[in-house]
């Protein structure tokens, strides 16, 4: 175990273009963009399927198919089709994000206590109000676990961006391997793992904050 690259203060210079802080920043950038795109695409679809019960077949199968796509292979295919740049990386990572969010949104909506939904309807709530005031808050714990799952996967997988000339913590892995600098590879692995834990802790805090206290007892 050679941690010299990780512990060298020169590699933690905040303004150095190839320094670890800058790489963390770009890494989190890819992660956030992919998560955002994934949520924009998968959340409405998942909620709709869960709310109406229509098309659950699609949700489950699309989710499973998405999980089985190798991200690196998809990335290389996208680069062949679209050329270099951020877009191929975002597409590959978004495909990774969609399945957990889609299936958790669907599952969260399906496993609700139907008596509560019926009661809400009985009180005269419209479909939209049932969704936003009853179903969504009650589905949040499941939804958030899906989101955290997606975030963890993307933080770990965003390293592939470096394979096609972009930044992120994958630079440490790929450049380190290219010049036989295993201390650098180790530094990359450690920082990615640490970042994944921190991101998950952060999301756990957010979950505690946004989930209704009434749901936490169960």
């Amino acid at each position: 175990m050679n941690l010299s690259y990780l512990t060298d203060p020169a590699h933690w210079d905040l303004s150095a273009p190839g320094g670890i802080p800058q790489l963390i920043l770009s890494h989190l950038g890819y992660t956030a963009l992919a998560l955002l795109l994934g949520v924009i695409i998968a959340l409405p679809v998942g909620l709709y399927i869960g709310h109406t019960g229509k098309g659950s077949f699609i949700a489950i199968n699309a989710g499973n198919a998405g999980r089985s796509l190798p991200t690196l292979g998809l990335l290389m295919l996208m680069v062949t089709l679209l050329g270099l740049g951020l877009l191929p990386v975002l597409i590959a990572l978004t495909v990774l994000v969609i399945p957990p969010i889609l299936t958790s949104a669907y599952a969260g909506m399906r496993t609700l206590d139907h008596r509560v939904v019926d009661a809400a309807r009985g009180m005269g709530m419209r479909s939209w109000q049932v969704l936003t005031r009853v179903e969504l808050p009650m589905a949040l714990p499941v939804l958030m676990s899906g989101f955290r799952n997606a975030a963890l996967q993307v933080v770990a997988t965003a390293t592939v961006a470096a394979a096609v000339g972009l930044g992120g913590l994958g630079r440490l892995l790929i450049d380190g391997l290219a010049v036989n600098d295993y201390s650098r590879v180790l530094a990359g692995a450690v920082v990615v793992a640490g970042l994944a834990v921190l991101v998950d802790l952060f999301l756990a805090l957010i979950q505690r904050w946004i989930v209704s206290p009434g749901l936490k007892g169960s």
């Binding site: 680069v79 050329g83 270099l84 096609v164 000339g165 450049d175």
Partner: peptide, 19 residues
């Protein structure tokens, strides 16, 4: 741009004008 050592990624990037 760090790509691959004389591999298809580099050749295509040159062809496409990315590099």
């Amino acid at each position: 741009k760090p790509l691959d050592a004389g591999g298809p990624l580099t050749v295509n990037a040159l062809k496409d004008g990315d590099i």
